[in-house]
Simulated assay, not measured.
Amino acid sequence: MHARVVAATTTAVLGTAALLLPAPHARAGAERPTVIAHRGASAYAPENTLAGVDKAAELGISWVENDVQRTKDGELVVLHDDNLKRTTDVEQVFPSRAPWKVKDFTAAEIARLDAGSWFGPAYAGARVPTLAQFMDRVDLHHQKLLLEIKNPDLYPGIEQQTLKALDNDGWLDVPHLGRLIVQSFSADSVRTVHELKPAVKTGFLGTPPVADLSWYATFADQINPSYTSISTGYVDSVQAFEGPHGRPLEVFTWTVSDADTARLVAGYGVDGIITNSPDVVRDALPEE
Score class of each variant (00 low, 15 high):
59 L>Y: 04
130 T>D: 09
71 T>V: 14
66 N>T: 14
40 G>H: 11
103 K>Q: 14
150 K>H: 04
31 E>I: 02
277 S>A: 15
280 V>A: 07
209 P>T: 00
193 V>I: 15
275 T>I: 11
46 P>Q: 01
44 Y>P: 01
79 L>G: 02
220 A>E: 00
191 R>S: 12
185 F>G: 01
130 T>A: 13
21 L>S: 05
142 H>C: 02
8 A>C: 02
51 A>L: 12
70 R>H: 02
3 A>G: 05
218 T>R: 14
54 D>L: 04
204 F>Y: 15
258 D>F: 00
183 Q>E: 15
36 I>M: 12
203 G>K: 06
237 S>P: 13
277 S>W: 02
184 S>V: 03
81 D>A: 08
209 P>D: 07
36 I>K: 05
104 D>T: 09
262 A>C: 08
76 L>A: 08
62 S>E: 12
42 S>W: 03
95 P>V: 12
96 S>Q: 13
266 A>L: 00
99 P>R: 07
43 A>C: 02
28 A>T: 08
145 L>M: 10
147 L>Y: 06
65 E>V: 13
263 R>T: 09
151 N>Q: 12
193 V>N: 03
40 G>K: 10
279 D>E: 13
153 D>I: 10
15 G>K: 05
211 A>C: 01
221 D>N: 14
94 F>L: 07
107 A>S: 15
217 A>K: 05
194 H>A: 08
149 I>S: 05
95 P>H: 09
19 L>I: 06
71 T>Y: 03
173 D>L: 11
200 V>Q: 07
6 V>R: 13
169 D>T: 08
141 H>W: 05
17 A>W: 05
3 A>Y: 05
231 S>Y: 06
155 Y>F: 14
83 N>R: 12
11 T>A: 14
207 T>M: 14
125 G>Q: 09
13 V>Y: 02
130 T>C: 14
64 V>D: 05
2 H>L: 14
281 V>W: 04
215 W>Q: 08
185 F>R: 03
3 A>S: 03
258 D>T: 01
242 E>T: 15
232 T>E: 10
89 D>P: 06
161 Q>N: 06
198 P>E: 00
183 Q>I: 14
14 L>R: 09
108 A>H: 08
272 G>R: 00
250 E>D: 10
284 A>Q: 04
192 T>N: 11
155 Y>R: 03
150 K>C: 12
98 A>P: 01
174 V>N: 04
24 P>T: 01
83 N>G: 08
94 F>I: 03
249 L>R: 10
277 S>I: 01
47 E>K: 01
90 V>R: 09
235 V>Q: 04
158 I>T: 08
186 S>C: 13
268 Y>K: 06
75 E>P: 01
23 A>M: 01
14 L>E: 14
18 A>Q: 03
102 V>F: 03
221 D>M: 00
58 E>D: 15
167 D>R: 15
276 N>L: 00
233 G>L: 08
270 V>L: 11
126 A>E: 15
157 G>T: 07
288 E>F: 04
263 R>H: 02
95 P>K: 09
257 S>A: 09
148 E>Q: 12
244 P>H: 02
253 T>L: 01
286 P>L: 09
273 I>C: 01
18 A>M: 00
41 A>I: 00
101 K>M: 09
114 D>C: 13
244 P>M: 08
40 G>M: 07
204 F>M: 00
61 I>Q: 10
223 I>H: 03
33 P>A: 11
243 G>F: 09
80 H>L: 10
93 V>M: 06
38 H>L: 09
